[in-house]
Amino acid sequence: MAQHATGNDAEHWDINITSSRRGLDINLAELWRYKDLLAMFVKKDIITVYKQTILGPIWFLIQPLFTTLIYVVIFGRMAKLSTDGVHPVLFYMGSVTLWNYFSETLNVTSKTFSENAAVFGKVYFPRLILPLSKVASGVLKLMIQLGLFLVVWLYFILVEQSITPNWHVVFFPALLLVFAAMGLGFGIIITSLTTKYRDLSFLVVFGIQLLMYATPVIYPLSLASPDKQIWLWLNPLTSLFEAFKFAFLGHGAFSFFWLGYSTVFTAVLLFFGVIIFNKVEKKFIDTV
């Protein structure tokens, strides 16, 4: 008959399935073991988008191209918003590309639990793999779109000679990392909060749109009067967009102080995001 295991508590158990999990208990080793799954998810995201299309991955370029054209017409020609002297095509293409990455990352990761309930309900793998894969496949799409931006950018540097980029472009990978982490942080918090009560998810699309207007995406920071700029700086996205524009377009403001603020903000956001995600992932399937 079964002898009780109370006497041998020192025994090693690989998995302990209980009702509660304390704090920041993420199993990094396990996450690493599932890296191939992450790669598969990324591959799936990329190739399923353009299966059975003729233009294939070119579709990734058409979207920012058209958005740029629309912005040039609406915000540039009709609303006559300033672009700080930068050619509107270049100005909008840069910010649109970057904004799309952030908003898509946030939007997609904020649906992690609700959209993958079918898979999550049948098999276990570290749930964090899924939002991470969305971040990664987003980076791949961004790279394609960034390629287009760089072509336009080089044209303006070499042919038009209208902009002067500077050495701050070396910070771009770091900027991208903060963008990704912030999108992920917001996304996993939202998905965790909406498994049981979905009210918040109605606000997401609307909120992202609102956030764009609260960030110097389609207008330069200099459009605001100097005493009002502080309010824009408090938005952690502002310093990132400004730094990007400063490095590539030679306009905008590069502030290490506010970049530090954004980084700390993102780190805290991600920290709490992971804690709440971890807590929710254990039982969400009962209520989603």
Binding site: A5, I15, T18, S19, F120, V123, Y124, K282, K283, I285
Partner: peptide, 18 residues
């Protein structure tokens, strides 16, 4: 579902090797 870690128990625990 509990053994597959799709969801977790309300009370109690399951310990697994392997």
């Amino acid at each position: 579902k509990l053994l597959s870690r799709v969801t977790s128990p309300t009370t109690g625990q399951i310990k697994v090797k392997g």
